[in-house]
Design a protein around this nucleic acid. Structure first.
Length: 488
RNA sequence: CGGGGUGUAGCGUAGCCCGGUUAGCGCGUCUGCUUUGGGAGCAGAAGGUCGCAGGUUCGAAUCCUGCCACCCCGACCA
């Protein structure tokens, strides 16, 4: 049991905060609502970013970068879009400071007021579509498949490290297509990429679905999402992909000449995942001792702890094992620190979530073995040093798979089908998790359910089967079940 | 923006009601020695504008006034 981290059973929310801070992922900053991502946390994010970036490139996308600042007038061009973001925009009004005459410090120079105020991007659709107008003339210019890695600002009232901060890092893909079908396909393809990443890299099972009107992205025709379940039974949206129709093309007048020499508006998508994934990663897998990281994202996958005594042979063996592991592409670290004792180190590496720890001491030297401790199950075993690298490589795969299986089992156990309002409320209060239930398809009903229970419709699963039923609240007819949950 | 709470060393805190030694303790840090297979022991040391600004008083961490910051709970949101 960690001495520093509040147990999940005492206070789940505090456990999360303790973990993020004590494991060195992030810290509060001098700016309210903004965080400092520390090297260890950033290392995990870099691994996520690199994997996603490869997947984007493999699906034909290229990276570019657009400005942080957006002219205010751009944001008012798409009515629904601005409505979604207006309340949380940071605005730049001046471009110069000067020394206060009374010597009290610097003040904003009132003579340096901008003619048109600039908005710090909450998302980049507007500035990008304003640019695309110049880039797209012909069907030959399409499709345009661009992604950008960037920071965005949404001025949130209440923030939580990684899950909701005023500034966060993300990627946003913005694509333009000649046909509706192709754009819809793109939105679905990127949703698949996100699901693939979540499941195979983060070991996080997700449900692919489409958002209801209430939860849809401002300015989108359809919003697709991947939804994950956290250990406290709350849902977390891990990624979104939007089919934007021709909304932004019309707002920014982006037309192209077709093969038939007619002029048409282009079809658009946008899609993104953010540092929020860090929060999902922590809340899906970790325990009261600390982080539990999936091997594919762990900055360090294996740590070797020589149990110190002045034994130079240990160092040599550790180096040899590390070298073999590196040869297999495994990220390994040897702990050469001789100040802290092994017990302290064990606890420390558990807190950091390093998937495999190798303990190497005098006893092992005599037996030709090494102690292998896996983080996900906390099991320890003694393994022959001969052939250890191959063994570890296999073990890392096994841990990755086990973490996914465990999270999937948890989600299955916490997904409940209900057919009555009483059941719905009862499950929500006791067991939590996803609740699969019928809904009459109206925003009014969804809003009423949210007001009464705080539960929202996370998505209409893409694989939902046609099934006649009655809405749990109104009793009106329904054609398929949707997924409800309380959500972050 | 409403309601509640907290500001004392890097971190966590005692003291505050009821003003009065040099502001105490734990963790961490530094030095030395002994240790090292699950969060080491002993000895010594350094480290403080008690959130900020006024006021009351012979005397303020403590009482009064104002301000600031952050946290928690709501409304809003990925």
């Amino acid at each position: 049991m960690s001495k520093e981290i509040t147990p999940r059973s005492d206070d789940y929310s505090q456990w999360y905060i303790d973990l993020v801070r004590k494991a060195g992922l992030a810290d509060y900053s001098a700016v309210k609502g903004c965080m400092v991502i520390k090297p260890y946390g950033f290392g995990i994010w870099e691994n996520m970013r690199d994997a996603l970036d490869r997947m984007f490139k493999d699906t034909g996308h290229v990276n570019a970068y657009f400005p942080l600042f957006i002219p205010k007038s751009f944001l008012s061009k798409e009515a629904a879009h601005i409505e979604g973001f207006a309340k949380e925009c940071a605005v730049v009004t001046h471009y110069r400071l000067k020394n206060a005459e009374d010597g009290s410090g610097v003040i904003v120079d009132p003579d340096a007021k901008l003619e048109e105020e600039l908005i710090v991007r909450p998302t980049s659709e507007t500035i990008i579509w304003n640019t695309y107008r110049d880039w797209i003339q012909s069907y030959r210019d399409l499709p345009l498949l661009i992604n950008q890695w960037a920071n965005v600002v949404r001025w949130e009232m209440r923030t939580r490290l990684f899950l909701r901060t005023a500034e966060f890092l993300w990627q946003e893909g913005h694509t333009a297509h000649a046909s509706k079908e192709e754009a819809e396909q793109e939105a679905r393809t990127m949703l698949d990429v996100y699901a693939d990443f979540a499941e195979n890299w983060m070991a996080l099972p997700v449900i692919k679905g489409v958002k209801t009107e209430n939860e849809r992205f401002a300015g989108a025709v359809d919003t697709y999402c991947i939804e994950a379940l956290m250990q406290d039974g709350w849902a977390l949206q891990a990624g979104t992909s939007h089919f934007l129709g021709q909304n932004f093309a019309k707002a920014f007048d982006v037309q192209f000449s077709t093969k038939d020499n007619t002029l048409e508006y282009v079809w658009a998508t946008s899609w993104g995942v953010s540092t929020r994934l860090m929060g999902a990663l922590v809340m899906a897998h970790s325990d009261d001792e600390g982080l539990v990281l999936p091997p594919r994202l762990a900055p360090t996958q294996v740590v070797i702890v020589p149990i110190p005594k002045p034994l130079p042979e240990l160092e040599d063996i550790a180096q040899k094992i590390a070298s073999d592991l590196k040869g297999l592409g495994i990220r390994v670290k040897i702990d050469t620190d001789d100040q802290n004792r092994p017990g302290y180190k064990f606890a420390e590496y558990e807190k950091l979530g390093i998937p495999v720890r190798l303990g190497l001491g005098k006893r092992d030297l005599e037996n030709g073995t090494i102690e292998v401790a896996r983080r996900d199950t906390k099991e320890k075993s003694s393994v022959a040093i001969d052939g250890i690298a191959q063994h570890i490589a296999g073990l890392l795969d096994e841990i990755q798979q086990n973490m996914f299986n465990r999270a999937l089992a948890f989600r299955n156990e916490h997904t409940t089908s209900v057919d009555t309002w009483d059941e719905f409320v009862h499950v929500l209060e006791t067991k939590r998790g996803f609740i699969s239930a019928h809904w009459d398809g109206t925003s009014e009903t969804e809003t009423a359910i949210k007001e009464q229970t705080k539960a929202t419709i996370r998505c209409i699963p893409l694989d939902a089967v046609e099934e006649d039923g009655a809405c749990i609240l109104t009793g009106k007819p329904s054609k398929r079940r949707v997924l409800f949950a309380r959500a972050y």
